[in-house]
Each structure stands twice: as C-alpha cells, then as structure tokens.
Write a protein that binds this DNA or RNA. Structure first.
Lengths: 347, 347
DNA sequence: TTGTAGGCGTTATCAC
DNA sequence: GTGATAACGCCTACAA
C-alpha cells in the first residue's frame, strides 16, 4: 500500500523531456493560446492518462488563492431539516462545478469555531453557516478577515451578515391562529434555544396571535430549552404533569415534536382527542404518523438556492450584495393532529 | 470586505526582524528544542496573537504531505442512518484532533467518483466510504494509488478493502424467523438495490429462514429496486394490488419502510391487524408511530468507531491491518407492528 | 540561539 | 512553440 504513485507535472515533463510549463499548459487546455503543437499536446495528454495524473489541488489553491470549494456548517446533520438543506446546496453547487464540504458543529459553539477555522485555514472560497445561535463574534470576525459568509436558518441580530431563512414570526403566528380558530385557548409552546432570535421570533408570533385574540398569555405554558428531542420530551413531560388544562401544544421544531409525542404517549393521552399537536418543520414522516401531524413547512430548497446564489455573487464580484436579510414565507400543512372543535379541556 | 488580512509567517518575521524559521518554530511550540530565548518566544507569540495568525493549512499540508483530515462519503445524508454514523465518526475524530469533511454522493456512483477525486486531490489522510454499491473499481483504484480507505455499510464483494458493517444475513434471518414464529407464512420482502451485496445478504437471510421452516419461497413476494422511500412505496403498492394473501411485509431499510407505510395507508389497511410490518434500521421516530414499528437495529456507533480506528491504524502505521471484514451483530427491537397470532389472510 | 536555503506542486510572467 | 524562473506559505536540514 502507499505506493505514493502520485504523478506530478514534473514527472510527466521529465518523462517527455519537456518543460513543466508546457505540460501544465497542455493539460489545462491552453494549447491554442500558447501555440503548442498538436503533436506535443497529444503526447502530453496521453502521458497524463498513462500516469493517471491528477492535479494536486493543494498546490493549485495555494498558488491561485482560490479553491473552488465551499464549506457548509450545520448544527446537527442528524436533523433531516438541515440534511435536506445541505442536499439542496450540494445540488446547486454541482451545477457550478464547485465542491462542497460539510461539517457538523454538534450544536456546540466551540465545535462551530473549530469547523470555521478548519475551513478558513484551508482557504475555501466561501462559507454557508447555520449557526448554533448563542454566540456570533467568531462569525463576523471570519467574515471580516477574508472569507465571505452567508448565514442561514438562525439569524443573529447583532451580526451584519447576509441571511436567508424563514419568516418565523409570521409562520408561528399563522399556526397559532389556526389553533385558536379551531377553538383552542389553552395552547402551550414547546420552544427551542431561548436566546436565539429564531426562537424569539417564533415565541413572539405565538404571543401576538394570542394577544390579538384577547387570550391571556400564560408564561407557564412556554417551556423548553433547546431544539432537540430530549429538551422537547422533558419540557412536554413537565407541562403535562403541571397543567391539566391545555388543549394544544405547538412545538418549535420537528425534534421537539418527537420528544413531545413521546411524553404524550407516556401519559397515555391521545392525539388529537385528548390533546392537539402542531409543529414547525415539515418532514415526510409526519404523513405516516397516526394521526398525521400538522406542521409549518419551510421552503428548504429556496433557502438553499438563495443562500448559494448570494454566496456565489459575493465570491465572484467580491461585493457584499447588501447585507440582505431574506425571510421566506412558510406554509401551514394541515393534517390531522389538531382537533376540530374544542369545547373543554381533557382533564 | 476581502481585506485579505491573512497574516503569514513572513509578515510576522518582518515585523519582528526575525527569520521565518524562528517564528515558525516558536509558534509550533518548538522553542525548547531549538533553544529559542524566552523573550523572543514571548515576542513571537504576542505578535502572532496581534496579527491573528492562522497557519495556512494548504501550504502546511503541501509541505508535510499530511493534512490531519479525513473524508467521509455517504450515499444519502438525508437518511438518518447515515447521518448518525457520520455523527459518531466525527465524535471519534474529535478526540484525535482530526478534522473530518463530509460529502454526499446522492446515491449516484458518478458523484461518488467526483467526491473521491475532490478528497484525494486535496490529500486527505484517509477516507471512509459508504458506497452507493453498484460499482467499485474507482474505490480500489484510489486505495492503490495512495490514500487508505475503509468501506462501511455496503460491502463490495470484489473489493479487497477493509470493511465494517452489519451481519445482514443473520439480522434478516432472525427477523424473518420472528415473523414466522408469530404465525406468518406469506411474508413479502421489500428489498433495496438489487445488485448490492448488502441487499443480497438480506434477501438470502429471508429466504433461508423460510426454507428452514419449510415455507415455499414465492419470488413474486420479493419486490423493490432501491433503498429509498419512493422505491419502497411503489413496490409496496404493486405488492398490495397483486397479492391479497400476504400477512406481513419485511422492509430492507427505514426509507423503504416509510414508503411501504404510505402504500399501506392508501390501501386503508391497518398495521398490524390487516398486515404486519418489520423493518431494517432502527430510528427513534419508530417509537412514536402508531403502532410503534418493530425493527432490526444496527450498531451505528460501533460501526463508526471500528471504521475510524481501522482507518487510523492504516494511516499511522501505514499498514493494511489485514483486509479485515468486520460484521457486527444486529438486534431485533420488538415493538407493536407485528400481529401476535395470525390465522388467516386479510383478504 | 538564530538564520539560510531548498522544496512541496502549481501557475503566471517574461524570455527566447 | 517552448522554457526558465519566481512565487504561493510552510517546514526542516544544515549552517553559523
């Protein structure tokens, strides 16, 4: 193993008794431009094939100060919401002959920093980050230094970086209004990472919908610490043990919803007869639950495309493209997890 | 933007009127070894901080012929089975100060080739690949050239590369036996990519279990083309439209199971009363289905750890570590999607 | 205790 | 038409 048969330009040039430059030019398709004879060109191409020549991108990037590579960092690749966005970004990049490399920050700002450093020290051309969300200095710093960044999903207020995400406020408000329209008054909100603007927007949408319908906001009904299943489970469990009056739970993410369903099942309650459920993040599996779960869908493809295009412009034209904040609309996908007419609590 | 404030060793050395080597050595913590005075060292470290020096890993890797970087390629990052493995590999790598970069081949061998090239031309130290599975030459080629590879999940028979995965034959057999034990005789198998060894092993396990129980194998009950939801859906739909006698379906992956459930729902059939379901790949969401789905669990963490360790050894000791084929046992997770006692078909 | 010089594999510039 | 040379930023013998 490790025969280190890596062939290089030097190797080929020696073998053919040509200069490195000539070989390089022929291989890069610049034969016409430099008037390299057809014969020589052919010779070089054949030798390259024979030696299985593959340009060393490290050397290339070092010289060119450009790597044709884009980094994507997400907080949890295990969450299909992010996995799908990543997939769309990759699709966009392929059309462009860019390579994308993915990194998972494991919902940890420290790992996020490390990932950024790993990318930036390898001189990727640009970065798309779905930040963990509780800190942001390292992001603006990276951006100022040299590499362009686009933020997705979780907007960071203090940051003046281009952003693409959903209109969480409106999405949350619409969902809450839908619940209210179905007769629900005692609606709990199982939230995500409290400090994050994304979460605050969703909470605000929920609260405003209540207010506008003259329903008193009960802060004991706003629970949860993070966007994951565990937090969703614990918060829901707490909620169900304390509040025998709620008729619906609105959850701030698919993972939180899974945890919430677990807690509901443990309490031997039935959706939607005993309690209604509505969640952010649409997922194909929601269709197959019994009952299918009503959700707020985000436009993942559009988020990915816009983010990629924004980044491309920044890279190509070396300009800031404004510090655009793009907020895409969400869509309520109505299934069967919300009870039609509510009269009294399940007590 | 793009101030290109990248600081380099040269920059720092000029600023301090020192040679590049000295600066390099101090920054790399070799002050003692080279007897650099404390004063100088301090000066250098401070300057590095002030200039926010970050080594250019491209240059470093080029020079060192080592990048402390490992590439992971999976066919579908959207499938939580792979996402979870990736997550475990990352965890293992972090303990080792290795950076891992992920790439998604989109279930397409061409993209897999491109991803491999992207990694190999950037001189990553090693590669963990969950191959698409219908071709393999490019893999052995890459390995022979220079970079060590470990294959996970889908074993490629012709290939003499180290492999870590599950014992699909036994897992499949155990599951089928469980179904038979519950009284099922007409069991359909909704399979994955037909050519892949992984799939063949699962089919073989299913068939052998039937044989050993003197149940005739009906090849019309073996359907499906691929590991994704779409294929699972179509195959199940076809199955249910033709065969009114089957009492159970065994699916070869979580995605296939989702598609199968969709088809079952469309037919207005009920699990497990009308038809039983059992699937490969355990997922947390299976718990929350109604009824919860019985599955064959693979040891994802163990697969990830073993693969990572194997690769590490290959990288460090530059040896082949045998062409080990590690097959880990699976575990049947019994939930409620298999009917307890079957007497007759649902017709 | 520090400096010099060569080279990792490319590409761009200038020369012939 | 082709070649020599410098440079990208870093590390490491070998000098001093």
């Amino acid at each position: 193993m490790k025969k280190n048969t890596d062939s290089t330009l030097t190797q080929i040039s020696k073998h053919l008794n040509l200069s490195i430059s000539t070989v390089s030019r022929a291989i890069n398709g610049q034969s016409k431009k430099y008037r390299i004879s057809e014969k020589t060109t052919k010779l070089i191409i054949e030798a390259a094939k024979k030696f299985k020549y593959e340009p060393n991108e490290l050397a290339r990037s070092l010289r060119l100060k450009k790597s044709n590579t884009i980094g994507v960092i997400v907080p949890d690749i295990t969450n299909p919401f992010f996995a799908v966005i990543v997939r769309w970004i990759e699709n966009a990049a392929r059309l462009n002959d860019k390579t994308i490399f993915i990194s998972d920050s494991n919902n940890d700002t420290e790992f996020e920093k490390i990932a950024i450093k790993a990318f930036s020290s390898r001189k990727i051309d640009g970065l798309i980050v779905a930040p963990v969300g509780d800190e942001s200095f390292h992001l603006s710093e990276t951006n100022q230094l040299d590499i362009p960044i686009v933020i997705i999903d979780r907007h960071l207020d203090k940051l003046n970086l281009p952003f693409v995400g959903s209109n969480n406020y409106e999405g949350s408000k619409e969902a809450t209004n839908y619940l209210i329209g179905k007769g629900h008054q005692k609606i709990a909100f199982n939230q995500g990472l409290q400090k994050s603007k994304l979460n605050l927007d969703r909470v605000r949408g929920y609260c405003d919908a209540l207010k506008e319908n003259r329903i008193t906001i009960n802060h004991n009904l706003i629970v949860g610490e993070n966007f994951n299943e565990q937090s969703g489970y614990e918060a829901a469990k707490f909620l169900l043990s304390k509040n025998t009056c709620i008729t619906a739970i609105f959850t701030a993410s698919n993972q939180i919803a899974l945890g919430t369903i677990k807690a509901i099942k443990e309490k031997k309650l039935h959706i939607p007869n005993d309690i209604s459920l509505l969640s952010f993040d649409n997922q194909s599996y929601w269709d197959y639950f019994s009952p299918p779960i009503t959700t707020v869908e985000q436009q993942t493809k559009k988020i990915a495309d816009k983010a990629y295009n924004l980044l491309s412009e920044m890279i190509n034209h070396n300009k800031i493209v404004g510090t655009s904040k793009i907020q895409l609309s969400t869509k309520l996908i109505i299934r069967k997890s919300v009870k039609d007419k509510v009269r009294k609590a399940w007590t």
